[in-house]
Design a protein around this nucleic acid. Structure first.
Lengths: 134, 134
DNA sequence: AGGTGGTTAAGGGAAAGTGTTTAAGTTTAT
DNA sequence: ATAAACTTAAACACTTTCCCTTAACCACCT
């Protein structure tokens, strides 16, 4: 069975980083350029984000598809829309308006720019009213 | 930024599976062989395991210092030493003797020459028994 | 003996990921 | 303003993953 997502190199950099070393210091220790350390660290952070996203998907499997936030939609209007769709199914979203907006933006920062939805976002809901994204 | 670990194909299979379809049925729907569906599903499950492992690593990032391999130590005696130290802390090293020696040498080739430790090497251990170096 | 559901192995072509260098850019702190 | 810390982009060799096919194998079940 395969290891985790992070390469040995990436783990190494993260550990040194955790200790508070600069990229330059790490570069000297592992004998490469600081630019490379930066790249490796960035890749590591991305891999961690991908791991999170992957497990998010599992929740969408348990939940049912609720609706789609269409490209161009005002983010501030999303909660009202989501609440309405949930009510149609007799479900109560377990986030208030503010929390929901935050959750939307936090879950997929690159899919929202300012108040705008940049690309279609699939919304899923579980029986207990938790919200997930596809 | 890239999406999650799972490919579209893998998600597709997982969704059908969740609905209770057999691999044969899915194979017909997505126009391929059941062997392929099996392979894709297996890859998906592996990817999910990798995602979990990756996030596990984050929690163990702040591992504790285990011991120091002192300069001049015979590399072949290192594993026994490390095992003993780990046991003192109630931790089980997740590498057998051979794997551990390889990991030691691979991690920092310049710190070992032949069977000898050239300079002190700090050993760290995480809660899941993974070993890394300072 | 068939039928069904699942798994494995070998192999191939396309695609994606990794580590690296070089070279440029930005932010931040002294 | 200078240096240090950090980020980004492009290009490269190399390795790995992904999806696919074919062919075989195992465990049930009636």
């Amino acid at each position: 069975m395969k290891q985790g997502l992070l390469t040995d190199r990436q783990k190494e950099v993260l550990r040194y980083r955790k200790k508070g070393l600069t990229q330059q210091q790490i570069a000297e220790i592992i004998h490469t350029s600081k630019a490379n350390v930066c790249t490796i660290e960035k890749a590591a952070v991305e891999n961690i984000a991908r791991a999170r996203e992957t497990l998010e998907f599992l929740y969408t499997l348990d939940g049912t598809h609720l609706c789609t936030l269409q490209q161009g939609l005002d983010l501030l209007k999303a909660p009202e829309f989501i609440y309405a769709e949930a009510e149609k199914r007799g479900l109560k979203v377990k986030y208030d308006t503010i929390s929901l907006i935050n959750r939307l933006r936090d879950a997929n920062p690159e899919r929202f720019s300012g108040r705008q939805v940049r690309e279609d976002v699939e919304i899923y809901i579980s029986k207990d009213g938790d919200i997930y994204f596809g």
